[in-house]
Amino acid sequence: MSNGKVTVKPKLLQLIESFCENNKEVVLVSLCTTDGFPIEYFSTDELNAEADKLAAISSTISALSDSSSRQMNQGQCGITIIEAAFGNILFVKATYLGTQCVLTVVANIKMNLAAARYKTKNLSQDFSSIS
C-alpha cells in the first residue's frame, strides 16, 4: 500500500539494481516515506517481508531514533544500525524527489559493518541527486 504520490523514476530502480548487483551480500533494500508508505522495495528470495509492513517498521525506527537522539541532546539521528545474529540492518534518512524518506538496507554477515554503513550512506546520497 503506497500513498501513490511519490513517483518511482527509472533512475531509482537503476541505482537499486546496480547496488544489489555489486553487493551480493545485500538481501534487502527498501525506500519508504517517513510516515511509513513504501516507494520501492527489493528483496532476495531468502527474505520474504511485506513491503508495507517493512515501510512501517522503518518509519517507526527512524522516528524513534530521531526522538531518542534529540532527547539525549545528541542532535538529529544520522543512521540507525541493528547488529543482528546473521547480519546488519541499517536505517538512514534520505531525500528523494524532495520527499523525506527512510532507506533501509539489510546486509548479511559477509559484509562488514563499516562497508555496509559506507555503501548505504552513498546510496542515500545518490537518491538525493535524482531529479
Binding site: N3, K5, V6, T33, T34, D35, G36, F37, A56, S59, T60, S62, A63, L64, D66, S67, Q71, T99, Q100
Partner: peptide, 21 residues
C-alpha cells in the same frame, strides 16, 4: 511526552502523524 511523529505525505487534516509510540 516522548513522541515519534513524521511529516505526513497524505492529506490527513494535519501536518504530522505518529509513526511510533
Amino acid at each position: 511526552p516522548f513522541g515519534t511523529e513524521a511529516k505526513s505525505t497524505i492529506d490527513i487534516g494535519k501536518k504530522n502523524t505518529t509513526v511510533g509510540i
